[in-house]
Design a protein around this nucleic acid. Structure first.
Length: 270
DNA sequence: AGTTTGACCCGGACGC
DNA sequence: TGCGTCCGGGTCAAAC
């Protein structure tokens, strides 16, 4: 499922493929994907060009001439760029007809993804109450300390809270906590300064590595399949059976109603 | 009043 | 073949 690295990869790939393309027609097959009024959505996007490509957390932001198209892939949203002659597939929900004869197709098996329009801004830092980007200077030890103060809920759950830091999903939350050797159930306010330093560093390292891997993998897919949003993961705990460090059996449990993997030997509470 | 939990949206996968 | 159940990101309502 797309988390920050995958969203970034999709964005980068779309930028190379449809930058400055014009939308000539829009077909909405499954209406709830588009959050706003259908007529307004079409009217405002018609004859607009894809000018710049930005990301905020897991949201794709397509800046057009006069408006910003926001897209969230949720669980399984995918974009394909295909010739109009290619038959529609079962889970294609929104079709953008481009001026180069290609179509940008939004495909989503679960139908959880959403699109909406917002005003263009120079700065999307206030967008949807999202927390800082993991790579921004705002994601600092002092910020984490302040945010986590008196937070009793498990640190894993806080990592998934998009208003704490934007873009981390279930898989990377497990991977980050494994990297810093902290038990996912640890109360959020129990992490010490060193833990927070490690948390910030590991988050950036892991996400960066995944973006790199995503970029590598997706290039081999794009020529035939369009933007599938698939990318390789080098997972250490999530879905693993044994710990790559100590060999202990990985525990699978539920934290904050999310499936959670951790090593009972390497990862300690505080 | 602020924080936290839970239902919801979906359909594929899986177990019986 | 056919049910029933589980899973999950973000939103929003309800409960604490």
């Amino acid at each position: 499922m797309p988390e920050l690295p995958e969203v970034q990869t999709v964005l980068d790939t779309l930028e190379t493929k449809i930058k400055d393309c014009k939308i000539e027609k829009i077909k909405i097959i499954y209406k709830p994907i588009v959050s706003c009024n259908e007529t307004t959505f079409k009217r405002k996007l018609l004859n607009q060009h894809f000018r710049s490509f930005k990301r905020r957390g897991k949201y794709l932001l397509f800046e057009m001439d006069d408006i910003t198209l926001v897209s969230h892939l949720r669980m399984e949203g995918k974009y394909f760029i295909l010739d109009e002659s290619v038959p529609l597939s079962k889970h294609d929900h929104v079709i953008f007809y481009l001026d180069n004869g290609k179509q940008l197709r939004y495909n989503d098996v679960r139908k959880f993804g959403r699109m909406e329009l917002i005003e263009k801004k120079d700065d999307y830092s206030d967008f949807k109450d999202l927390g800082p980007e993991p790579f921004s200077d705002k994601f600092s030890v002092s910020y984490c300390k302040e945010y986590l103060k008196d937070k009793k809920g498990p640190i894993k759950q806080t990592l998934l809270d998009q208003s704490f830091v934007a873009g981390i999903g279930n898989i990377y939350a497990d991977e980050i906590l494994f990297a810093i050797k902290v038990d996912p159930r640890t109360p959020s306010d129990k992490l010490n300064d060193q833990d927070l330093k490690n948390l910030i560093r590991s988050t950036r390292t892991i996400l960066k590595k995944a973006i790199k891997a995503g970029g590598t993998t997706i290039r081999s897919y794009t020529s035939s399949l369009g933007v599938t949003g698939r990318f390789q993961l080098s997972l250490k705990v999530h879905t693993m059976k044994n710990c790559p460090e100590c060999g202990a059996e990985i525990i699978k449990t539920v934290v904050g109603s999310r499936g959670t993997y951790y090593c009972p030997v390497c990862q300690k509470g505080r």
